[in-house]
Amino acid sequence: MNSTIQNIYFRSDQAKAYTLLSPALILVIFAMAAPMIVMIFTSFNTQISMIEIDRTFTTGRYEDFFSKPIFSMLLFRSVKISFFVTLLTLVTTYPLAYYIAFYVKKNKMLWIVLMTLPFWTSYLLRVFSWRVILGNKGVINSALMGTGMIDEPLGFLLYNQAAVIITLSHAWAAFAILPLYVSLDKIDKSLLEASYDLGNTKFETFWRVTFPLSLPGVIGAILIIFIPTVGDYVTPQLVGGTDGRMLSNMIQSLFGRANNFPLGAASAVLMLTTVCLIAALVTYITKKVSMRMS
């Protein structure tokens, strides 16, 4: 009997695959899927008092979300800020990854490690360090005032959306470099030579061969940065000011001081949906565009 089960087990690739997957699967089910389901259920409820929630089904929280302009505005702002974070990160990290992949001959690994060096300190420390750089008595303002170029500190450096974008893109840069580097490093150099040989300049070769072939890395980097930064609430809290508040800050307060769990859950569900749609769209469009370009 026992041997029959063994036999079936060893013959089935699927059974073996699930065995390998099981630790991760268990974690995902209990730490992600279950809370997600609870959240979705909660979003259809009503908060009656500080501690009481009415469990009858209602779409009222979603109606609340869309009837109060502040919510849509914050959602839009979250997406906008993340969009610029992603863009800024890509523009700054792609050349670096390109350089390491094509020009560094020895010690590529050392370069990669150096790039991820900022990640060795805590995320909070990195955000605070940007306050030190951008603040009224910060590095930039002190330097400008010390050299006499300005009399008053520049107020527009901190506590706005730009500060959030700069801080977030610096914080996530290392995550972008890795997928970009991997996809660029994989490109067969003779493909680039073939392109020059067929009459293309280096610039044309980049857009017709290198960039399309690095797209898996680009899409990877976009998703890796965009998805977590949309939901970030620490950075906007610390460097964003009122102008830099994002939907996640609102959700945080709905689950905290504002004490409206169902509305917080509904906002979270809507944000999740938006992010998923955008991620799918990005993947689709990038693939289409790359086909056109080459």
């Binding site: 493909l191 020059y196 080459s294």
Partner: peptide
């Protein structure tokens, strides 16, 4: 290379995969 009147057949063929 792009300005020379020569073209090359590569050892690994270098067919663009995309």
């Amino acid at each position: 290379p792009n300005l020379r009147p020569s073209n090359m057949v590569f050892q690994n063929y270098a067919i663009f995969p995309h």
